[in-house]
Design a protein around this nucleic acid. Structure first.
Length: 493
RNA sequence: GGGCCGUUAGCUCAGGAGGUAGAGCAGCUGCCUUUUAAGCAGCGGGUCGAAGGUUCGAGUCCUUCACGGCCCA
């Protein structure tokens, strides 16, 4: 393959650097300072103060701009903290080092040491006395002004994206801060962080299609988990009354701005609590995270301003449907009339589909996207909630909620079903649904029922989609903007 | 899965109604010791996503495919 002219030019400069006595990839330069620290420390230092200060600073990073004159040059050096201008002159750095500098390109990594001064325009700058070439960028960087715009290239070559688009780094710094805050929040409340299997013989805990893999030595198929739920509740049976897990789930479904096949889920379980306690805990958690990460409770998201100030609205699914569609509440309660409405609206409902599931279908199609401000939808139908405790008031419902913000589901929580007999019957009902063609129905898990038979305390639990929460707090439109390496089709040669 | 849109130099983008492929940045050569997207002068760089088709002639029109984006399911 023919090498690009710009790559050839850079290879030639690398050869010239060797000729000048540089090692090609040295590793003996240790920067003592960071660009942003230096800038902060000397933000108010006048030219005279800097002149009188004999101390040296040393930073290392990537050359992101070079403005070169004959015997001197300004350049921008970028490290993990930010950028600082350097000034290299033949007089101050010496003939040999200046010759090295002249072989450097945008993107090259160097270390410099020298004294600070202020330029004519007042910019804090290092006058370079020692210059160490550290690594060559053999490929040219994207354009300095527009950065890398092509979203396909940005996702496929995240290194380059991070390098030239500083706002991308900020999103992932925000994400890291949020994860750290989540851990502090739960550990401060007595929750134990645990890790449960990602490879499971039965993919339980949610209604979704799993990825399948194979264990050679055991000669068994295993599933990548779609949820950690059933393992976390086994731990509650075992006396770990408060547990949380913050890690990846895998679902073998489509890719979109809202879905990546692997995504990060927070799940937590608290004994002697109810789903109402979980709603209150969620309000506190999200409000705290927003304050921590964004610094405000009213946050911008796309065209909206979201107000995360607790408490949030709570409304039953059927009331929400009635409110949105204009149907009378008794029509929503009536299986025949509700089904007729679905068919009239072109919402696909199958012949044997139970009333509760028809309601959920209608809710998802008509109402979900309208829930912009934080809203807990409560009173979920039992047919779509095989792991949730029955409502004491209405046996067709369970003590469950989902949280919607900006038209998207962010969390799902409920009082846990801890009656092993009921749990077995629910699994059997799911098997029936599966035989009826529902390939997302929950599988039977005998081992889990056996665990429940030892007695699980009354418990409530919840899952929160972390990527979506990061999207909200980082004002990102696509899940790919908050996942470092989103799933893409492989490039074809 | 369906609809719409995109794919042109390393990057960011133009390319009217089919008639020899353009700019800026980046690169190369030269000048330049206070620049800020530095400046000035000159030069090089293209399988126009791929494959077919229509046409005297296709970046441009048609078909299929690939990859991506947005919307819908």
């Amino acid at each position: 393959m023919e090498e690009h002219e710009q790559v050839t030019a850079r290879r030639n400069k690398l050869a010239e650097l060797r000729r000048l006595g540089c090692r090609a990839y040295p590793n003996d330069f240790q920067p003592r300072d960071l660009a942003a620290d230096v800038a902060a420390k000397h933000a108010d230092s006048t030219a005279e103060v800097l002149e009188a200060d004999a101390s040296q600073v040393s930073i290392a990073g990537r050359l992101m701009a070079i403005r070169s004159f004959g015997k001197a040059a300004f350049a921008q050096l970028q490290d993990r903290s930010g950028r600082l201008q350097i000034y290299v002159t033949r007089a101050d750095s010496g003939e040999d080092q200046f010759a090295v500098f002249r072989q450097l390109d945008l993107g090259d990594i160097v270390g410099v040491e020298g004294k600070l001064f202020r330029t004519r325009t007042g910019e804090l700058t290092i006058l370079v006395e020692r210059l160490c070439y550290l690594a060559k960028a053999l490929r040219p960087l994207p354009e300095k002004w527009h950065g890398l715009q092509d979203v396909e290239l940005r996702y496929r070559q995240r290194s380059l994206d991070l390098l030239v688009n500083p706002e991308v780094r900020r999103v992932f710094e925000r994400r890291a801060l949020m994860l750290q805050s989540v851990r502090l929040f739960f550990t401060a409340r007595g929750f134990l962080e645990v890790e449960t299997p990602m490879m499971q013989a039965i993919a339980g805990g949610a209604l979704a299609r799993p990825f399948v893999t194979h264990h050679n030595a055991l000669d068994i198929d295993l599933y990548l988990r779609i949820a950690p739920e059933l393992y976390l509740k086994r731990l509650v049976v075992g006396g770990l009354d408060r547990v949380f897990e913050l890690n990846r789930n895998f679902r073998n479904e489509g890719v979109s701005t809202q879905h990546n096949p692997e995504f990060t889920m927070l799940e937590f379980y608290q004994a002697y609590a109810t789903y109402e306690d979980m709603m209150a805990l969620t309000e506190t958690l999200v409000a705290e995270l927003a304050t921590e990460v964004v610094g405000a409770l009213r946050i911008p998201y796309g065209d909206h301003e979201i107000d995360l100030t607790p408490p949030w609205r709570r409304v039953s699914m059927k009331d929400a449907i009635a409110e949105q569609t204009g149907l009378a509440r008794d029509a929503v309660d009536d299986p025949v009339r509700l089904r007729a409405f679905a068919e009239e609206q072109g919402i696909p409902v199958t012949v044997g589909m139970p009333h509760g599931k028809v309601a959920v279908e209608i809710f998802e199609k008509t109402t979900e996207a309208t829930l912009i401000q934080p809203t807990f939808i409560v009173e979920y139908p039992v047919e779509v909630s095989p792991l949730a405790r029955l409502s004491d008031d209405d046996p067709s419902l369970v003590d469950r909620f989902e949280l919607f913000i900006a038209g998207r589901e962010l969390a799902n929580g409920f009082s846990e079903l801890n009656d092993p007999t009921d749990q077995r019957q629910r699994f059997e009902a799911q098997l029936e649904a599966r035989r009826g063609g529902d390939d997302e129905a929950h599988a039977m898990d005998e081992d889990y029922v056996r665990a429940l038979e030892y007695g699980m305390p009354p418990t409530a639990g919840e899952g929160i989609g972390i990527d979506r929460l990061v999207m909200l707090l980082a004002n990102a439109a696509s899940i790919r903007d908050v996942i470092l390496f989103p799933q893409m089709r492989p490039e074809r040669p």
